[in-house]
Design a protein around this nucleic acid. Structure first.
Lengths: 171, 171
DNA sequence: TCATACAGTTCTAAAATTGAACTGTCAAAT
DNA sequence: ATTTGACAGTTCAATTTTAGAACTGTATGA
């Protein structure tokens, strides 16, 4: 599977991954949300090679996640600013941070705290159902094909139904 | 930056990316949430090379995201099951899907609908503040260093304060 | 005996990433 | 007038990853 094929998969997650699903891109986006806007800023904050940084920024601009805006003439200089499409990545960023806060902190605790302007408190992000407002648990969600689903015949096979025949003892 | 260094960064997002931040790993996890459990199941659903699949599964097991459980003796066969740590990735998956649903669908509409058992409706995931329950907007969140932050002197520089000196006209 | 299911491992070729140097414009300092 | 430094890239060889295909080995059923 080539990476531009990802964007044509009938799967919203695959398409998202096609746009932001690599390590450097995610780190670049972290910096965007931390208000970094310029080439040198990204480069020195991340230690990414200039080559890759240039390429990733181009891709994010092409995808409409960042906008390249001139801030100075001669020599022409540009800032990279999140578009609305980019700002909409915020829940993904927060979800990543929260999982790290939950499962990857050391004895010292969280590297970063988040404060909600509206209520003034440090918070964790919680994902809830848009319809009833209850927190979402994987077990309580059922998926079914939507209008953009691939026809059943095209669908990729999953595990066989485990037709148990006579196998020597499952453990 | 090497990839195991990522996990030692004082940043929860970087650490999370160190565990799940590559394209195949994310797709493997999608399959896990869609109930795929076995090597062949992942391989045929994703078209990933067997080599990479084996490696990624090993890493996810090492990281405690998946557990490798025997389901058959001779030949020994195992299933890969999400641990609680793995199940906790659900908000990340849903956030990825939701962004794709919002920004990457074609005319045909969403490939997959999600139904919440509790309320019976198809829903979108919404990220809210754990303290006040309001939806989170990037603009309304302030970050500040937590106990696990790197000492200020070690901190990486961001853009210069744009000391405007006398430059020829910003556009 | 032969074909098939399953879960890998091994190998080479192709692609992506790293690291370092280089380009070019302009401002400020010497 | 010349040098230095900031900035935003581009170029290129060397290394690392990934892709693609074949191979290993146990066991079942035909």
């Amino acid at each position: 599977m080539k990476w531009d094929e990802l964007e044509e998969e009938p799967c919203s997650m695959a398409r998202t991954i096609g746009v932001i699903g690599d390590r450097w891109t995610l780190l670049i986006l972290r910096e965007c949300f931390l208000r970094t806007r310029r080439f040198e800023g990204f480069q020195s904050a991340l230690g990414i090679t200039r080559h890759l940084l240039a390429e990733r920024l181009k891709k994010l601009v092409r995808q409409g996640v960042l906008r390249r805006i001139p801030y100075q003439e001669s020599p022409k200089r540009h800032e990279y600013i999140l578009t609305q499409k980019g700002l909409d990545l915020y829940p993904i960023m927060m979800a990543l941070v929260h999982w790290g806060d939950t499962h990857m902190v050391d004895e010292r605790g969280r590297p970063l705290l988040h404060q909600h302007r509206k209520c003034g408190k440090n918070f964790d992000p919680v994902m809830v159902c848009s319809e009833c407002g209850e927190p979402l648990l994987a077990k309580e969600v059922h998926t079914h094909p939507g209008p953009g689903a691939r026809a059943p015949s095209e669908r990729i096979s999953r595990d066989k139904p485990a037709k148990p025949k006579t196998r020597k003892q499952a453990a």
